[in-house]
Structures are given as C-alpha cells and as structure tokens.
C-alpha cells in the first residue's frame, strides 16, 4: 500500500511539474523564442492538407508544416479587431499564393482561441477565409500562449534541421497585407 501511494505521489508530482507549465504560460510567445507545445489536427480537407504539406491523420506541430516560414494568427470569431483584419489577412494569403517565389515558402494558419469548430466555421464562411483555421475550443492553446489578447500574429521560421524560432510577433496593429508581408519577408531573411 505504501509503495503504491509513493508511486502515485511521484506520478502526481511529475504530472504537476510537466503539465502545469503547459497549461498556463504567463506571457505570450515572443520573437527569439520557440513555440510552446501546440498540437493541431491534420486537416481532413485534402486541399488544406496539401497546402500545409501534411499527410495522414492525427496531430501535427506547426514546425512540421512544409515551408520556410509559417504565419500564425491567434484570432477569435468574437473579436472585433480579428473581424476587421480578416479581409486584409486574406489579402496577405493571396499575395503569397500569387507569387511563384513565395508560394511554397510561406504558409498561413489561424487558430480560433476559445472557438468551437462551429464558431470557426462561421468566421471562415463570413470572411471567406482561404487558409486553414483550427479551433481551440477549450482554450488549451490560448493558455500555453499566455492568454494573449487577439489578434496575435507570429512569424515562425522553420530551419532545415527541423528546429524553429519565432522571428516576429505582434499584438494587433495589422497595417495591411503589403506592409505585413514586408515584415514577414524581412524577418524570415527572404529579402
């Protein structure tokens, strides 16, 4: 009995040490840092899967996306600024996709913090969002991202050896597709 309790205690302590920091960060991930642990479902939609260069099912991590850099937008269907920025972010996607040079180098995803799949779908449909959006219904990703306000933009550079680094992050202040793309290209070393 004593041995069982000791083992249970050890497991519990380990759980607290390992899991708690993943549950709630006290600040958002910023430039110079690696991303926190973010698991996303591989899209069922083949077009989105191809866009991200993923195959199969299950979960994936952002650095597994086949690209030189990934722009991540933490948004919410309920956030007025995210709604206001949506057409401009769509334009950013089109600028990238219409460029033969950038098309396969930069990818764009959105994560709807606190949004259910239904709510993400409402946002996607309302603004005709052409890039993959993922729900974060239970705020799991929002918590590891320090419960940052929305919209929050991160540019993640993915290195050839599989490592990655956030090279740019900003809270709101989206000044339009072209100025933002300039920042993305500069911080990814593509310009």
């Amino acid at each position: 009995m004593r041995r069982i309790l000791t083992v249970l205690t050890m497991i519990t302590l380990l759980f607290s040490i390992i899991v708690f920091p993943a549950l709630a960060a006290n600040k958002p991930p910023e430039k110079g840092e690696a991303l926190p642990v973010i698991n996303l479902p591989v899209p069922r939609n083949a077009e989105e899967r191809n866009y991200l260069g993923l195959s199969g099912g299950g979960l994936f991590k952002i650095p597994q996306i086949k690209a030189h850099g990934v722009i991540v937008e933490l948004f919410s269907m309920y956030c007025p600024f995210c709604q206001k920025d949506a057409p401009g972010v769509n334009e950013l996607y089109r600028l990238i996709e219409n460029s033969a040079v950038l098309k396969n180098k930069i990818k764009l995803i959105g994560i709807g913090v606190g949004n259910s799949p239904y709510e993400v779908e409402v946002f996607k449909k309302t603004y005709d969002v052409p890039f993959p959006l993922f729900p974060d219904k239970d705020f799991v990703i929002h918590k590891v991202c320090g419960e940052v306000r929305t919209p929050y933009y991160m540019v993640v550079k993915i290195n050839e050896d599989g490592t990655h680094q956030i090279v740019h992050s900003q809270l709101g202040n989206y000044l339009g597709a072209e100025p933002f793309l300039e920042v993305v290209l500069k911080t990814l070393g593509l310009k």
Binding site: S76, C79, V113, E147
Partner: peptide
C-alpha cells in the same frame, strides 16, 4: 490556479 480563459479581443 489555471485562470478562467476568455480570449479577450485587443479592440
């Protein structure tokens, strides 16, 4: 200790 999350907009 995990606070209640609400996903506040920057607006």
């Amino acid at each position: 200790l995990a606070p209640v999350a609400f996903g506040l907009s920057d607006a």
